[in-house]
Design a protein around this nucleic acid. Structure first.
Length: 334
DNA sequence: TAATTATGACGAC
DNA sequence: TCGTCCTAATTAC
């Protein structure tokens, strides 16, 4: 269930571990058998993340488009080469920390987070799930793990290199595309801070928002307006801006709209680096540590219906907006 | 064991 | 605005 930061992290894993290698492709579940047959034996040559979608190019101009939707995930297994550009998150994963630990990190055989930026990247033999659910998986570190790993559950697509296995399950979209189709799909999407020039992205975002009568709470979730923001970041960003979700886009002051874009740039970078949707980064260190300790304490408003606002004490409101849950503080966000 | 839930998006009315 | 699709962990019973 990723928002944009997870997709960028996944793309980096593909860049590290899949791109430049020939892959065996299969669809254990059967629902992508034809596509897998086309990919089988080809070398992956490029990966691109745009918003919540990932595009993986193969030899001979064949692209794979994947959108994880609400509950899609990639499971990596085998020898995973960690990306040195992603610093380790604070804390560590443990068997003890089953709850609230984000698991789209890579762990080495000892169960420690192996994404430290210190030193050369190490190889690790692990199973990793690229999403932010919790799981009993973790470093299973069995030196003589089965290879290839046994298929568990509904695997739509399995990509296998000599040493790495990537299993895709539950995607809302998994299809082959031509280069033209990829270009069209990307062009249609709103700006992603990490794709193209961010300053240009800001101008595009501001221009669109400031001419729409649509509530800002809907615009932030609209992937044609801005890419990668989901329900969590939406709620948190609106609170951080002290903005009423119902304010029509065109009524939001230009400087505030620019502020929203810059906040997204910042939050996305933090999310990619830490693997967590950190939105309370401006808290004092102690309060911050406390807040990060539990999943239920991590956000300003998200998932806090009825609880007192962290700033003013007013009960956080939960309402449905376009069939999604929207959390906000009616006092702080006017 | 069943119900509930989820960080999404689409198409039909 | 609704129904639909995709899967698995967690919670309720």
């Amino acid at each position: 269930m990723p928002e944009g930061h997870s997709v960028h992290r996944i793309a980096r894993q593909f860049d590290r571990n899949i791109v430049g290698r020939p892959v065996r492709a299969s669809s254990p579940q059967g629902r992508f058998a034809e596509g897998a047959a086309v990919l089988d034996g080809r070398e992956a040559v490029e990966v691109r993340a745009v918003g919540k979608q990932m595009f993986l190019a193969f030899e001979n101009e064949v692209w794979l488009r994947v959108h994880l939707g609400m509950y899609g995930a990639w499971d990596f297994a085998g020898e995973i080469l960690a990306d040195p550009t992603i610093a380790s998150a604070n804390g560590r994963m443990g068997q003890t920390n089953q709850r609230g630990t984000d698991i789209d990190r890579v762990y080495d055989d000892a169960g420690e987070n192996s994404l430290s930026s210190i030193g050369a990247p190490r190889r690790s033999r692990v199973r990793v799930r690229m999403s932010e659910q919790t799981t009993g998986l973790g470093a299973d570190g069995e030196a003589e793990a089965e290879w290839p790993p046994p298929v568990v559950g509904q695997v739509r697509l399995r990509l296998l290199t000599d040493v790495t296995c990537a299993d895709l399950r539950g995607p809302t979209a998994c299809q082959l595309q031509t280069p033209d189709e990829v270009l069209a799909a990307i062009t249609k999407l709103g700006p992603d801070p990490l794709v193209g020039d961010p300053a240009e992205g800001e101008e595009r975002f501001v221009a669109v928002v400031r001419r729409k009568p649509t509530p800002i709470g809907l615009l932030l979730m609209d992937q044609n307006v801005v890419s990668g923001i989901g329900n969590v970041y939406r709620a948190e960003m609106l609170f951080r801006a002290r903005l009423n979700p119902h304010t029509p886009g065109r009524d939001v002051l230009e400087e505030v709209v620019r502020g929203l874009w810059r906040d997204w740039v910042r939050l996305l970078a933090i999310g990619i680096e830490t693997g967590q949707m950190m939105t309370m980064d401006d808290l004092d260190p102690e309060a911050y540590r406390r807040a990060m300790a539990s999943r239920d304490d991590r956000h300003w408003v998200y998932h806090r219906a009825g609880l007192p606002c962290r700033v003013c004490g007013t009960a956080i409101v939960l309402e449905e907006m376009a069939a999604r849950k929207l959390y906000w503080c009616p006092n702080c966000q006017r």
